[in-house]
Design a binder for these strands. Sequence first.
DNA 1: CTGGCCATCGCAATCGTTTGCGGTGTTAAT
DNA 2: ATTAACACCGCAAACGATTGCGATGGCCAG
Lengths: 352, 352
Amino acid sequence: MRPKRPAGAPQAGAQPVTLRDVAEAAGVHTATASRALNPKAQRMVNAETVRRVVRAAETLGYQPNPIARGLKTSKSSTVGLVIPDLTNPLFPPIVRGIENVLESAGYSALIVNTDNDPERERALIDSLRSRQVEGLIVATARLEHPLLVQLQEQHVKIVLINRRIENLQMPFVVGDDATGIALAVKHLVDLGHTRVAHIAGPQTTSTGVDRSRAFRHAVRDYGAEEDPALIVECAHWSEGDGAASMRRLLDRGTRCTAVVAGNDLIALGCYDVFAERNISCPEDISVVGFNDMPFLDKLRPPLTTVGVPHQELGAEAARMLLDCIDEPERRPRSLLLPVTLIVRDSTAPPRA
Amino acid sequence: MRPKRPAGAPQAGAQPVTLRDVAEAAGVHTATASRALNPKAQRMVNAETVRRVVRAAETLGYQPNPIARGLKTSKSSTVGLVIPDLTNPLFPPIVRGIENVLESAGYSALIVNTDNDPERERALIDSLRSRQVEGLIVATARLEHPLLVQLQEQHVKIVLINRRIENLQMPFVVGDDATGIALAVKHLVDLGHTRVAHIAGPQTTSTGVDRSRAFRHAVRDYGAEEDPALIVECAHWSEGDGAASMRRLLDRGTRCTAVVAGNDLIALGCYDVFAERNISCPEDISVVGFNDMPFLDKLRPPLTTVGVPHQELGAEAARMLLDCIDEPERRPRSLLLPVTLIVRDSTAPPRA
DNA sequence: CTGGCCATCGCAATCGTTTGCGGTGTTAAT
DNA sequence: ATTAACACCGCAAACGATTGCGATGGCCAG
């Protein structure tokens, strides 16, 4: 007889009501109790017995111990979420989307921030794996990403979010960058712009190359000028790099009346140099961003941008990962979510 | 002899290198291996043996299985983080601060978003506890918070962040709201304002009452007008509620030339109302916010606010929680972190 | 009446660690 | 020389769940 906890003190200490307790209470063996509580195995046990066990479990307030369960099944009900920096306003909505679907599936997420440092990334992923995460949602993918292909070879379940990897069968969910950019360019051309520039994101990321490729196509399709000088690249998706690139563009005297930025942060960088140089937006130059991160409508001028359903992005990625976990043999699916142009006041017809 | 994994395929499958493997490799029992690897118990085993074991562990790439360890020790190396909504820009920096110190201590955080719903909060905390978190960092505390006192009675380790609970010995770490508000009021008075309003946060939270109390004191201390009509309250710390309260203030005809908002979101609400009613800031009304959330400098006008070291807040809270875990008997400490006034362009002398 | 099948359930091993306890062998004290 | 003290290490029992396998009993068909 193991020591009973003091009666009348339900849940006094931690929560020591174990499977054995409910088994005893129901007058069965722990094995039967386990099966009775497990939907997959319920049919192996008498319906009446199941009822007794679940009732016992309920009245005792039994909560299975996921650690013990995890030890036996080597499932942790946990997934790892690898992002560059939670502080980047792009990610909180994604994270919430992910957590929402994980939560309803009984899973939870361990979040790590790599700060885009490959060394750190490797270490953090190691620690994630040692915590037995059942899969990874990765938002830090670069086009060339040896670590990720290595993980894939080790059959780690991975789904990419917001990024793809070249020449690789790895499931991903991204926004429809191409039509987003096309929408932006069309909007500008419709306003009358002919010389529109592009401040591209880093070409080491799929997002960067997809958007700049889409830009070149759109410029051609909608009949704007195809001047290579109108395209500059950023080293990182940051405000500072955006500003630097904008300065480069201006300094080399490339004339333009509109710019589509690789993302909102880069657009913010443009705003900074506009302020430095007394350029007024949208009168002198129109700007459109990408992502529709929060509070863009509070800027002066409110930023025209393309809205990406980040929360759904996250939700879909989580669903996809759970699918991979449930049926490891399914072939990788990927998803392209629709985006929308959000017109605010940073775009206007060019000065006559 | 248990089946060896195929040689030449290091880490091929999951990561099946177990303590037993290193024990065998070092020619000792798992028990000794365990002790050799555990700093607390190393002195119970011969130094030479320790060396052999650690070398074996290193060459095999041994990673202890935290699940198994947790099962035995009922420690999960995990803490729960309870916040209202990750999407609120206030929290990402806090989370990063927390994760930084947890990471270096070998802990990690499970984040849940309550959306300020007590029912959801209870359910999420239950799920956190069933995952054996060793403690909680809570950012959702209200002045009256039965759930939290109940948890405290059950000896759950809790540290509050950004909030306190009334009449309760529960460790917390907060910014110095009082001097923050005092700084703001002094700044406005120095500019020449005499009728300064306060749009207070919800008085159900310590932050709300602390700031509005500080406001009343500061107004008196610096000789501004003490008109109760100058103070209105928000139901929530949100943009919408801030706007609503600002409208109430204006609609009842209370004259004022400056307002200190309970936080930045509320200040943003004021901006919205200014836009609606063609009030220009700072010419007609000055505004100062609280928190210095990201991108405030991009607003028009850039928002004067009081800066709170959120990342340090998080870091200190995490340190505090780890302390509580390590030595459960220590009496609760609390921390008040210094804040600074950040003057931008939303404040100016009142119109002559 | 017997053998076989099926439904139901218990036994016990197992997951990878930690840890109380007891068993060595060695050294120092009497 | 006997023994106490000690350092070191192995044995085995945990931790709380899952699961292959075997045992039991009831039932039907042959």
